[in-house]
Design a protein around this nucleic acid. Structure first.
Lengths: 106, 106
DNA sequence: TAATTAAGTAACTTTTAGGTTACGCAAAGA
DNA sequence: TCTTTGCGTAACCTAAAAGTTACTTAATTA
């Protein structure tokens, strides 16, 4: 498979977001995850692979089971992007305050 | 057109993210935006509509021109989602610290 | 008022994300 | 060792996202 997603595309899918949500409660095997979804196991496998490739989860093989755990890496890119715009709004607010202060001094 | 996107889908598209990036520098008309992209104007129009519907930008009509400005609303849903996992990691870190502290007391 | 400019709409095409079924393989149990 | 279980891969299908061209409309300008 040749699918390569960026962090934003990865969390754009509702099922994948739900998986991250579930894994934030507890680490799970592939089948454990699958129980929560109304789709075939291969479909689950695909999502898991995408989450793994994107650094949102890590996978520990234990015999024939694969245990999925949340991993911070994938979230970082999103975080940074959000942070950038956060600063934009904060800055805008600051400028507005300065403006109001100047007005009140007149 | 009947396209309805959630906040995550909206920022999943690289062109739309670039638009938000550009608008964080300065507000722009539709054609102003279009200059930065290698795609037809109708394609730009579509993206702008999606950003507007999602509350990521607002549009002020000035004559035949439409001026686009960043708007905070759309970012909020993303922010909240990120915050949830932020807390997850912080919490995990705290638990780890507690564990280390307990060890050192033994 | 005729021409130009800024932008939207409609209809269509292409690409791709997300799903399926069928099959294979290795680990675990009977 | 035979069967079951947990999971992956391959090939395929479908729906929808993202793009196109052709046309329209309304504001501006010559």
């Amino acid at each position: 498979m040749n699918q390569s997603f960026n962090a934003f595309q990865i969390v754009a899918d509702p099922s994948r977001r739900q998986m991250l949500q579930l894994l934030s409660q507890d680490s799970m095997t592939i089948n454990g995850l699958a129980e929560h979804f109304d789709m075939s196991r291969p479909a689950i496998s695909k999502h898991v692979r995408i989450l793994n490739d994107g650094g949102f989860i890590s996978i520990q093989d234990k015999g024939r089971e694969r245990h999925c755990t949340l991993k911070q890496d994938g979230f970082n890119e999103l975080q940074q992007w959000i942070d950038y715009f956060d600063k934009f709004w904060l800055n805008k607010l600051k400028k507005l305050e300065t403006l109001i202060n100047q007005k009140s001094k007149q």
